[in-house]
Design a protein around this nucleic acid. Structure first.
Lengths: 246, 246
DNA sequence: GCAGCCGAGTGCTAAATTAGCACCATGAAG
DNA sequence: CTTCATGGTGCTAATTTAGCACTCGGCTGC
């Protein structure tokens, strides 16, 4: 992807600061954020001050920065602007009867960012804006999304350490090639049309993910289910995906 | 509010473009956006190209710009970053039994931006990211929010035509002073602790709004209710406000 | 109490970036 | 076909930013 003629570096870095600020749970100072993003502290300080000026950041008593009131405006406008969340919530709720986690997410660098993440027994609206980032390579939604990319872009993403997401926990190296490598897994995802992963924590907790066609987002279900159930689940999830795509 | 030392104009203008883009329903071109925001078309074009580069904008077939896939990331992160929407949805749902509209919003310039806007009979999650902007001066939530400002800031806001929100419909002049002027109304709001407005469209459709203390946001209910019911509604809404404030 | 350290914030000038004109190509309207 | 509007870019002057060096304030260890 070529960065256009005269890309505006201030805007790029400012947005990076904003996103890092929003993703970071605790208030954070210019220096610390600068280290995270690989930017000069002075520059970060001035960007943060600018964000504070427009209300997207604010400072606490210790002069650390945290998201400001205008972040709500941005959230509301972003949701309106895309329409995806609005379109998706209804259909996603129709999967609750499966008694599995129901999620929708998008890619951010090498991480999956969850737009919605609902666990059985919760009320529908509790699924919003709660989950942190998760490494895309080991996530069902992440694999479903990465599988829509050309191999070239994936190599590029994982080759360039600077594309690693700054606020995410340090990632373990992702094996791209080889029999159990990411590219092999993604080839399989492409072939069968959906992603099926085991989470590392517990052996029988799995995710089934399907990419949406027009939205660069993916939906899926997670929990304990048997191999026999997979094809049924896949059909349910794909029906919901079709509904969301409209 | 002083704009800090070395405020980053590119960031300010870029964010303005982003917000305008997100608020604007249809795809829009550089020139048109430039006219709306009072910026040079070349500048806008390059800012939009930069936004497109980071995924926050994209171009359609006619090369017009619309919000891009990363806007979802921003929405999710913004929601997470503030926590307000997450905290608020549950308590707001407890007002559904009133059979009134239930809303939460924040101020953006002279407009109310709705974070949530639910009408009776809908499912809870349909209330997200749907309503457009609404002039703060004639909105119950808007008045509740404006009432928390010092008079000075309000005069400033309405004096400076450039602070008018660019994507909102042209506003009719707001009368500040006089018996029915905005400042008089706001004084009353401050005194009684909540806002009560009549919408212009139909005489008996009213809004009751209450500002949240820590969040620069307001919640309220709207619909047809009698004077007798006001004090009861006020209590209900204030209870919910207290819950949200934690 | 004091030194020592770290962080936020800023003045300054060199160095880098952007502004915006002029221009091109394209598509729609008349 | 002409006209008008649009998106887009090359170019250089003019503006903005970079980042060092510094101040100030808070905190820690002693």
């Amino acid at each position: 992807m070529k960065p256009a003629a005269q890309p505006n570096q201030s805007l790029i870095d400012g947005l990076a600061c904003l996103q890092a600020l929003a993703s970071h749970a605790q208030p954070i100072g210019s220096r610390e954020l600068g280290r995270m993003l690989g930017l000069e502290p002075t520059r970060v300080n001035r960007l943060l001050k600018t964000l504070a000026f427009v209300g997207l950041a604010q400072q606490n008593d210790q002069r650390k920065y945290l998201p400001g009131p205008a972040i709500h405006v941005l959230a509301a406008q972003s949701m309106r602007g895309s329409g995806l969340i609005r379109r998706a919530l209804g259909p996603l709720e129709s999967l609750f009867d499966l008694d599995l986690q129901v999620a929708m997410g998008v890619l951010w660098e090498d991480q999956v960012c969850y737009l919605y993440h609902h666990s059985p027994g919760e009320s529908a609206s509790q699924g919003l804006g709660r989950e942190p980032l998760y490494p895309a390579a080991s996530s069902g939604l992440g694999q479903a999304l990465l599988a829509t990319w050309p191999e070239e872009s994936i190599r590029e993403l994982y080759a360039d350490a600077s594309r690693r997401h700054p606020v995410a926990p340090p990632r373990e190296p992702v094996a791209l090639d080889g029999e159990a490598g990411l590219l092999t897994q993604l080839a399989q995802v492409r072939e069968q049309g959906f992603a099926l992963t085991w989470t590392l924590e517990s052996g029988d907790f799995r995710t089934l993910g399907v990419a949406l066609k027009n939205d660069q987002a993916a939906i899926g279900v997670a929990g304990k289910f048997s191999d026999r159930e997979v094809s049924g689940l896949r059909r349910r999830v794909e029906e919901v995906a079709a509904l969301i795509e409209g």
